[in-house]
Design a protein around this nucleic acid. Structure first.
Length: 140
DNA sequence: GCCAACGTTGGC
DNA sequence: GCCAACGTTGGC
């Protein structure tokens, strides 16, 4: 199982909406590197749900429930999306400021490449971030 | 609101 | 194919 981090501006699509909807197609990615990451996702993979811009924190965990398929919001069909399901909220949201303070997390893709909206997270980093957020369920 | 990073576009 | 101009994202 692989781990990821997906970003959303809460003004556009928030964690609350994700929870309310349950399963949600993750559409609108228009960046080739992010697309590559989406295409690599497998059913059962988990991802942090990150609020960019106004909050800048990991606020929840989602699970991939449908692997990459053509993004219906892209006319040309050259982009892909996946479906993700809300698993649960971070008991304590992990802020970008905290992440940046941790030497262990300095090479996290989120930090290194701030503009990438779908980033991979290593299993080690996943564990560290879960611990920081008080996530109780061991996923591996 | 500003600025840095980075992707895209278009002239040559 | 190079590179300057410009637009967008996202942190501060």
């Amino acid at each position: 199982m692989a781990f990821w981090l997906i970003k959303s501006e809460p003004d556009a699509f928030s964690w609350d909406e994700q929870v309310a909807n349950g399963v949600e197609p993750w559409t609108g990615v228009r960046n080739h590197q992010a697309k590559k990451n989406l295409a690599a996702m497998k059913n059962g993979d988990r991802a942090f749900f990150y609020h960019s811009n106004v909050q800048r924190a990991i606020v929840g965990v989602v699970e991939v429930v449908r692997e990459a398929y053509p993004d219906p919001t892209a006319e040309t069909g050259q982009w892909v999306c996946v479906d993700v399901k809300a698993v649960g909220p971070m008991p304590q949201p992990v802020t970008l400021a905290e992440i940046k303070q941790s030497a262990e997390l300095e090479d996290l893709a989120l930090v290194r490449q701030s503009r990438l909206s779908v980033c991979p997270v290593s299993a080690d980093h996943w564990d560290i971030l879960c611990r920081m957020g008080g996530w109780k369920e061991p996923v591996r």
